[in-house]
Design a protein around this nucleic acid. Structure first.
Lengths: 349, 349
DNA sequence: GAGGAACTATGAAACGTTTCAGCCATCTTG
DNA sequence: CAAGATGGCTGAAACGTTTCATAGTTCCTC
């Protein structure tokens, strides 16, 4: 029943356990003949190395932990893919944990990861401050923050520039000739939402300033950015917001909407269409995240794409570097640029 | 740097290591006073139990492995959620592995899981036959097949009845009065595709037989099921198929399409709409899987829903049972019924 | 042919737990 | 008060590896 141990392999091959271990870890240090014999014995017994014993003795595991806010979110699964690829290239395995935005759950997982003595942890923390995480770092496990900029310079982080993303979206809408823009978003405590809005506001302000300078008489009014508040970044919120927008008097209604994420934008698209407004003719629309279904919408949705897999890859590389370098490691904060993806929903015909 | 061991805790608390271990594993066997002392010492030193040592000595880990075909597929992430919930309730942790439909990758992961001495494995195998998996089972690790019916009675499996799903979809379209149905699917080696088609064919045949029996003169022709072959179950395939369908002479074109999955259906929806056909008036549409975005489509998409989280939950429970029962365990094959979700895309107005 | 490299293989210690037989006190019971 | 039961703790063995000092061969080289 129990899996054969190195000892039984050694007996069958008539060698010492040390030699069997060498076959496993330093095959070159063993003569071809004995190596062959040991390998045969392993095969015959169905030997599988016991990773617990190996980790215990050698003091190092081959595992890194990845803690995400939501495994069902494509953003995180793509990130996970990137992490996994880099890990695999370096002979490591990833333990994927889903905190589900729940503090206690996250806490439990971190505890488990530390008990497992993972070599390092990649995490998008539920809360900005996290005592458990601090302790783990203090005790010597490297941690890289994912999709969260490290505020203090005392650790590595990998994130995407949401302010830039917001600016790109708004600039695109302005370039299409729109003057009455709207930002649809909510849960302002979410830093991503606040930053995307900030970027859009910057773009609108800059455009207004430029226009004032050139002082064109007779041109349309200065560009504005209305704020459409929603309770959450969900499809339902988008549908609901669409109903409110549809009943606004036409001269007040924004002609172009920038949504804090794609789900919201898709909800708006369905709602606005149902209310008889056409996209992009009556209202232009741009989302954020470029989820798989953005291109599959009734009117293909323009969006802002984040380099998700690369985010994961770079995060994993940073972690590996810290694992290798140890004390010599210098923390880095990497910030990626998002990318504008133009589809039909925002382009004037 | 290194995390304190039980030994150092013992020294600081002036007790033996055995007592520290008891505090960890059988707190009741230790007097409150010493327990307190030990706990304090642990706190002071930042003690974290070494799971490798524990697993090595006790001979059992607290881990189960879950190997899926694609972590970015919502089907599997929902299943994973179910698995995770049950595991957590039983003090276990799940190592999630993504085979990415790649045989060698799957092989590597299985090897790793066996080295880790996981208590059991849940897997949707890439290939039906899998030697590595056989060996693992032979060596005593319980395995439950996910979304794959065990052919032989020699293991547990959990799956959804795709034949029934196909029948439900076709019966619904027939009930809406459609007579010229079409099945859109491809990669007939995928058992899911073949079975969904089989169910639809059964429903159409039954309807034809019923009609022949009642022998109504002047009624429309017997119901038929056309086959629209596509290379893959993707959005692009759907768009492409739509173009072909749109150019068919109207009397030949099916008035209702059952797509092997939702992605395909969404592609068809976009393509048919772009070609000037209206849904559901000109063509009714129903998909399969009920992905999140089905309801968010331009015309909310009818679909067949699988009890995904429950699939995961039951699979995990089966595995736990087998882990507990050991030799006494009787293998079971669980088959779930899918559910028809009616939305606008298939309902005659 | 002596002296030394270069190879190979050995055997025991160590990693941090759990487990368990056994010991000492204290308590219970007749 | 003797005898047994109970409760609390100890100390050492064991889990399956890796690691390393050591030793035995073989092969060169001068």
């Amino acid at each position: 029943m129990a899996i054969a141990s190195i000892k039984e392999v050694a007996k069958l091959a008539s060698v010492s356990v040390g030699t069997v271990s060498n076959v496993l870890n330093r095959p070159d240090a063993v003569s071809p003949a004995t190596r062959e014999r040991v390998l045969n014995a392993m095969n015959e017994l169905g030997f599988v190395r016991n990773e617990s014993a190996r980790a215990l003795r050698s003091g190092r595991t081959r595992t890194m932990g990845l803690v995400v806010l939501d495994v069902t979110n494509p953003f995180f699964t793509d990130v996970a893919k990137g992490v996994e690829a880099v890990a695999a290239d370096n002979g490591m395995i990833v333990t994927l944990c889903n905190s589900d935005q729940d503090g206690p759950r996250e806490h439990r997982y971190l505890h488990h990861l530390e008990e497992q003595r993972v070599q390092g942890i990649l995490i998008t923390p539920v809360e900005r401050e996290n005592e458990r995480l601090e302790q783990i770092i203090e005790r010597g496990t490297p941690v890289v923050l994912l999709d969260h900029r490290a505020t203090r310079r005392n650790r590595c982080s990998v994130a995407v520039d949401d302010v830039l993303g917001g600016r790109l979206a708004a600039e695109h809408l302005l370039a299409q000739g729109h003057r009455r823009l709207g930002f649809v978003g909510g849960s302002w405590t979410i830093s991503q939402v606040a930053e995307r809005h900030k970027g859009a506001a910057q773009a609108v302000e800059a455009a207004a300033a430029a226009q004032a300078e050139s002082a064109e008489a007779g041109s349309a009014g200065a560009p504005t950015l209305a704020l459409i508040d929603v309770p959450s970044l969900s499809f339902a919120s988008g549908r609901h917001a669409a109903e409110r927008l549809a009943t606004m008097p036409e001269p007040d209604r924004p002609t172009a909407l920038f949504c804090a994420n794609d789900l919201l934008a898709l909800g708006l698209m369905q709602g606005l269409t149902a209310a008889g407004l056409r996209i992009p003719d009556d209202v232009a629309l741009i989302g954020y995240d470029d989820i798989d279904y953005a291109g599959a919408a009734a009117v293909p949705l323009s969006s802002i794409r984040q380099p998700r897999e690369e985010l994961g890859r770079v995060a994993a590389e940073l972690l590996l570097e810290e694992i290798d370098a140890g004390e010599r490691h210098r923390h880095r904060q990497v910030l990626f640029d998002p990318e504008l993806v133009i589809r039909d929903s925002s382009v004037r015909r």
